[in-house]
Design a protein around this nucleic acid. Structure first.
Lengths: 334, 334
DNA sequence: AGGTTTTTAGAAAACGTTTTCTAATCGGCA
DNA sequence: TGCCGATTAGAAAACGTTTTCTAAAAACCT
C-alpha cells in the first residue's frame, strides 16, 4: 500500500502538505502545489490509512451493532435502518451475532472496545449480566428494546401492543385465548406476554397457565405449541403468538387438525414482517417499525458520540393491523 | 482509555514487558513480573488499542461483507454463515448494503480499503463496473455468486437448478410454464432464467416471451407479474419464480382470481427460505445452501489472507424440494 | 574462579497519519 | 529601501502499539 510519504516524494512536497491538501480545506495552498499533490495521489492510487488517522484522532468512525441473530427475520430490517444512517453519517457498521449467549456478548464487547468503535448499539437483550462494560462513561451505547439497564434506548411499547392484539380478540368474542411466547431471555417476549395477561385481567377473563405455551420465535415452535394447545380438553378459540413466524406454524397445526383459520381458531401474530400480508390467510398482526427503530437508534448514537444532549428514551408507535387471520368467535354459526 | 504506558508505570516495568506478557507467550518472563503486569492490567481494565496494533501489523483483523440488501431474506443466512466463521477465526465483519448501486459499491470499497480490512466478500453482484479496485493483487476478495470477474468464488449452479425446477413441472405434464425473474442486474436471476429456457428447449417447448415476466424479488412483484400472466389469452398452468417471496405473491394472485394452487396452476419458488415449508401450500422450491455459502466463502477468504493456495471456485449443490405447490397439470380432471 | 550461554528486561525504532510550531517567501505600504 | 503582515511550506512531535537490538543478570559449565 502506498503511503503519504511516497505521495509527498512524488509531488516534491512534504507529507504535511499532502495531508493538508487532502483534508484541510481551510488551509491555504498554492494552486500549483495542490495540483501536483492531487496528481500524485491519483497516479499512485493513494488510500489514506484510516488506522493511522484513527490512532491519532481516537476512533475510527465505526460502530458495533450487536444482535442475537441476524437470520431471525426481525433483525435485518433493524440492521438496515442502522446501516443506512451510519453510512450517511460516515460510520461503518460492525455486525455481531450473540445468540443471546452472555459469553459471546462479552467477547464481542471486548473486541469492539479494542477496535475503538465510537459506540455500540445493542438490539435484543441479553446484556444484563455482562458486567459493567456498558456503564463506563466513555462508551456510548444505545439499546434497542427494553433491558435491565438505564441507558439511552429506542423502544416500542410491547405491553400495550400485546394488550391491543389481545383486546382485539376479546372484542371479537373470544374468551379462551392462548399465547405462544418467545424465549424466556427475551424481554420483548416477556412484555408481550405481560400485555396479554393485562388484557385478560382488564376484561375479567381468567389467566389460564395451560393456555400459555413456551416458544422460541421459530415456526416449528409455533407449530408444536399449537399442537399442544389443540390437545387440551377445552381448546382455545384464538391464539396470540409472540412473532409472525410462530403464527405461521400455528396456522399450519390448526389446519392439520382439520380446523380453519379464522373460522375455528383465530391467530394473531406480532411484528408484521414483510410477507405477513401474503400469508394465507393474510395475518392479523402488530406492526412494529423495525426499520425506524434502527434509524432512530443510530441517530441517537451519533448525537451521543458528538456529545450533544440526548433524551434517554424514545418510544415508537406500534399499530394493530387487522387482516384475515382473526375473526369473530364461532363465525361459522354466525 | 488507559494505555500500555500507564500499565507499565503501575507495574513498574517497561512497556515492552507489558506487551510481551500480554501477547508473546513464547517469551520467557519471570513469574513475579508477569504477575505484577497482569495485576496492573486488571486493576486499570486495560484494553489494548487495536488501531495501534493494526497500524504496525497491517490489517486490523476485519473483513468487509458487501451485500445488495440485508433485508432481502436471502442474505441474512449468508451473512450469518460468514459471521460465524469470521468470529471463530478472530475476524470482525463490516456490513455494507449497496442496493446494487455502483456508486455505493465504490464508496464502500474505498472506505473498506482505507480501513485496511484484510479482505472483502462480495455477495450478490453489481460490482462489474466498479473499476479495477478488485483486481489489485494486495486485496483479497471472494465472490458469492457469479460475477463478470475471474476471482475466487462460491457459487451454486443456478442454471442447473432452474433447469431441474422447470423439468419437474414439465414432467408433471405442464406445457405452458411461465417464469418471473428478479432484477436484471442480478446474475443469479439471469442464470435461473437461462436454466428455465434451457429446460424448455431440451423438451422442445417454445420459449414464449409473454410468459416471461420481469420481477424484483419482492412479493408484490410476484403478485403483479402473475396478474399479468393470468390476463393473457392462453394462461400458463405453471409458474417458476426467481425466489420464494415472489412465489408467495404469485399464489396470492392466483387465489384472488378464484383459481387454486396447484389445482389450476402450479408454482415453484427458489431458495427455500426458512418459512417456505410453512407457506400454504408448502412451497415446492429449490433449496440453496445459503448458510453454507457464507461459511465457505469466509473460509476461502481466510485461506487467501493467509496466502495459502486456494481453489478459484467452489460450487455447492442445490436440491429440488418438492412440496405441495406443484402438481400434475389438470389435476382436477385427473 | 572465569568464561559462556541462557534468561530476563529495557531503549528505541517503526507503523502512517495529523497537527503544532516554526520558517521562509511574498506583497504591500510608508 | 526597509518593515510588517499574510501566505505558503516544512520539521517534528504525537497517537499506542510491536519488535529488533542491546544489555544486565543469572545460571551453567569446566
Amino acid at each position: 500500500m502506498v503511503t503519504i510519504k511516497e505521495v509527498a516524494q512524488r509531488a516534491g512536497v512534504s507529507i504535511t502538505t499532502v495531508s493538508r491538501v487532502l483534508n484541510n480545506p481551510g488551509y491555504s495552498i498554492s494552486p500549483a502545489t495542490k495540483e501536483r499533490v492531487l496528481q500524485a495521489v491519483a497516479e499512485l492510487d493513494y488510500r489514506p490509512n484510516a488506522l493511522a488517522r484513527g490512532l491519532l484522532k481516537k476512533g475510527i468512525s465505526a460502530i458495533g451493532l450487536v444482535v442475537p441473530d441476524i437470520s431471525n427475520p426481525y433483525y435485518p430490517e433493524v440492521v438496515r435502518g442502522v446501516e443506512d444512517v451510519a453510512s450517511r453519517l460516515g460510520y461503518t457498521v460492525i455486525l455481531c451475532n450473540t445468540d443471546r449467549d452472555i459469553d459471546k456478548v462479552r467477547r464481542y464487547v471486548r473486541v469492539l472496545l479494542e477496535k475503538r468503535v465510537d459506540g455500540i448499539i445493542f438490539a435484543g437483550g441479553g446484556i444484563e449480566g455482562s458486567d459493567d462494560d456498558f456503564l463506563r462513561p466513555d462508551l456510548k451505547v444505545v439499546l434497542i428494546g427494553r433491558h435491565g439497564l438505564d441507558l439511552p434506548s429506542v423502544q416500542v411499547n410491547n405491553v400495550k401492543a400485546a394488550f391491543q392484539a389481545t383486546e382485539h380478540l376479546i372484542e371479537l368474542g373470544h374468551r379462551r385465548i392462548a399465547a405462544i411466547t418467545g424465549p424466556e431471555a427475551s424481554t420483548t417476549s416477556l412484555d408481550r406476554l405481560m400485555g396479554y395477561k393485562k388484557a385478560l385481567k382488564e376484561y375479567n377473563l381468567p389467566v389460564d397457565g395451560s393456555l400459555i405455551q413456551k416458544g422460541n420465535f421459530r415456526p416449528e415452535a409455533g407449530y408444536q405449541a399449537t399442537k399442544n394447545l389443540l390437545s387440551i380438553e377445552e381448546r382455545p378459540t384464538a391464539i396470540v403468538t409472540a412473532n409472525d413466524q410462530m403464527a405461521l406454524g400455528a396456522i399450519r397445526a390448526i389446519r392439520e387438525a382439520g380446523l380453519q383459520v379464522p373460522g375455528d381458531i383465530s391467530v394473531a401474530g406480532f411484528d408484521d414482517v414483510c410477507v405477513a400480508s401474503y400469508f394465507d390467510p393474510p395475518l392479523t398482526t402488530v406492526s412494529v417499525p423495525m426499520y425506524s427503530m434502527g434509524v432512530r437508534s443510530m441517530e441517537m448514537l451519533a448525537r451521543l458520540i458528538a456529545n450533544e444532549k440526548e433524551k434517554r428514551r424514545v418510544v415508537l408507535e406500534t399499530k394493530l393491523v387487522i387482516r384475515q387471520s382473526t375473526g369473530p368467535r364461532y363465525r361459522r354459526e354466525g
